[in-house]
């Protein structure tokens, strides 16, 4: 069972919910956690994995052998991202524009193009004290594209695991553009964490629409319940989005999370609630 925790708006509590769900799930199941917010990965701060494996990742970008190149310009013409320019007898490559699609390499009539890995980030993995197999992607500063790192992260199983985990939890990035779509692709369920404010609602609609386009069932967690207004509840009712858990606004929780404590270790009364959340998700997938 692969569960994505997403939100649209940042700071609604995705990582809070994802890490507590993982901690509770790990009591009875084998759990794999993937922090897919490669621009701002924070789940390790709460789950404390002992990282033992590290791999650099990126995309394959072209390099042109000047001896073989005839400057015909075919590579530049097929590139949709203007990452290659032929200026007189010079071939220029702009790595920051390249998507790593390989089209230029395929069309070169002289086979003058080879590819090299342009590193844009790294993957780390390790096991947490509770036995959760943890993996994260970390994008290098100054890099624009998160999706290639995410693709590698989703496939990666470096840390020694004997079998596929019962439950995989993916902590999604904020927003509603391509990195969120890539995080959701191939998942079974989307858990939408929101706060009951106009910002929370606006952005919830965006991610709920992505889950809908991908045909994924979804449910909602309302965090900081009690602030704002009840428009999120009304929206969920109108759109048959089940509200699976409400976490009231409590300063004590906010302070503990600020210090890097997970919700279920701060307020152990939440353990059965998260266990119930997991049961509700599996029940929805079984029907």
């Amino acid at each position: 069972m692969r569960i994505v925790v997403a939100s649209g708006k940042g700071g609604t509590g995705k990582t809070t919910v994802a890490t507590s769900l993982a901690l509770v799930a790990a009591q009875q199941h084998t759990v794999c956690f993937r922090d897919c917010d490669v621009e701002a990965p924070n789940a390790a701060l709460f789950l404390h994995p002992a990282f033992d494996t590290h791999r650099e990742v990126g995309i394959l970008i072209p390099q042109i052998d000047a001896q073989q190149c005839t400057y015909c310009g075919k590579c530049a013409r097929v590139c949709q991202f203007n990452a290659i320019a032929i200026v007189g007898k010079k071939a220029l490559i702009f790595p920051e524009l390249c998507h790593g699609c390989g089209s230029c390499t395929l069309v070169c009539p002289e086979q003058a193009i080879s590819e090299r890995l342009a590193v844009s980030g790294a993957l780390d993995s390790g096991v947490t004290p509770e036995g959760i197999v943890f993996a994260q992607g970390v994008m290098d500063v100054g890099q624009p594209m998160a999706v290639p790192i995410l693709r590698e992260l989703k496939e990666w199983s470096a840390t020694d695991v004997t079998a596929a985990p019962d439950i995989e939890i993916r902590d999604a990035p904020p927003g509603a553009s391509c990195p969120v779509v890539e995080t959701m692709r191939g998942a079974d369920f989307v858990l939408l964490v929101t706060e009951p404010t106009p910002f929370g609602l606006h952005d919830l609609k965006q991610v709920a629409a992505i889950a809908g386009q991908l045909g994924l069932p979804a449910g909602v967690v309302i965090n900081r319940d009690g602030i704002g207004d009840d428009s999120v509840g009304a929206y969920c009712a109108e759109n048959a989005l089940p509200i699976l858990l409400r976490i009231p606004m409590q300063r004590e929780i906010a302070e503990a999370i600020a210090r890097g404590h997970s919700l279920v270790e701060t307020v152990p009364e939440y353990r059965p609630l998260f266990s119930n959340l997991l049961d509700q998700i599996s029940a929805r997938l079984d029907t």
């Binding site: 940042g10 701002a40 890099q143 624009p144 594209m145 998160a146 990035p173 927003g175 553009s177 990195p179």
Partner: peptide, 10 residues
């Protein structure tokens, strides 16, 4: 601005 450090932030 947007959150994160990727292309929209740049």
């Amino acid at each position: 601005g947007p959150p994160g450090i990727g292309c929209p932030v740049i």
